[in-house]
Amino acid sequence: MTKLIASREALLMLAIAVLLGIIAWRFPAFVVPSNLLSVFNDTSPLILLAIGQMIVILTKCIDLSVAANLALTGMVVSLINIAAPDLPVIFIVLIAIGFGTLLGMFNGILVWKLAIPPIVVTLGTMTIFRGVIFLLTEGKWVNSHEMSDSFKSIPRTDLLGLPILSWIAVVAVIVFTIVMTRTSLGRAFYAAGGNPHAATYAGINVGKTQFWAFTISGAIAGLTGYLWVSRFAVAYVDVAGGFELTVVAACVIGGVSIMGGIGTVFGALLGALFLGIIANALPVVNISPFSQMAISGGAIIIAVIVNAQANRTTGRIILKKAEHAA
């Protein structure tokens, strides 16, 4: 299985390489390092959200409220920026993470304590979060000129040749790789999703583990909310509308099993990059946005088929096997 997972990610890397090759053949300028870095920067929000979503899906849940969380948190920090333009940006970032965390915890509590199916919970909170933005603003936009310069500048500031936005994605990939592979909590995510019964018997509180997954997803969505509105210098009700599905798609393409228990940060990164490259490259090579949707959709289905093949050997019944063994 280790080999299969490795090869699953290797396969995805190969697919990305082939994709880049085809694009390079039609439009060589796309694959120069500076452009690739800008594609990475452009894909950073998707990478961040996909990492959070990956953890949630790992525990057999789904978080449809990430994009709405992003939009609401983005709006909240924009309004705070208007009210207190001199507040240092570091506090804005902390508020964004904190507020997103609270929204994530709200999802998590409903799933954990009331045992409501996650898809229903987050479908509900997704609508609520968007609704709250409207209540806060009566549908008005917060535009570039209302935001302070320091508020807008953070994601674009270059550090060692990369914008801070990209650095945040890089740091998140490293931090969450460590969390998922080197901490008890990370192990609990895999166990709770891989076999909730066995996890319960091993003393893991499955509901609580799912709560933490939603909390992390919310924190990441909150942070991304600030990055998103400051980068595009605009906040409104429909920011990142429908983006939650792109995030789920990135996870699925990245080899995260929708049944829980299987997935890596690296896979989520690759899945996000795959979609990011398609989104950036296809307009350049004159392929219509509609074909782009079809290509993304095709990639999802191919990914699911490949993963289903890989998972076929698992889930055998021990006792049936034991009957034959001796």
């Binding site: 066995a198 018997y201 091993a202």
Partner: peptide, 27 residues
């Protein structure tokens, strides 16, 4: 407690052997 339904309630098939063994002993 080693449950009756060891197939369903026992092992986590997607995790490696060592991670299954140490799961209740992570502390």
């Amino acid at each position: 407690y080693v449950p009756e339904d060891r197939g369903n309630q026992g092992a986590i098939v997607d995790l490696p052997i060592f991670q299954n063994v140490t799961l209740p002993s992570l502390k």
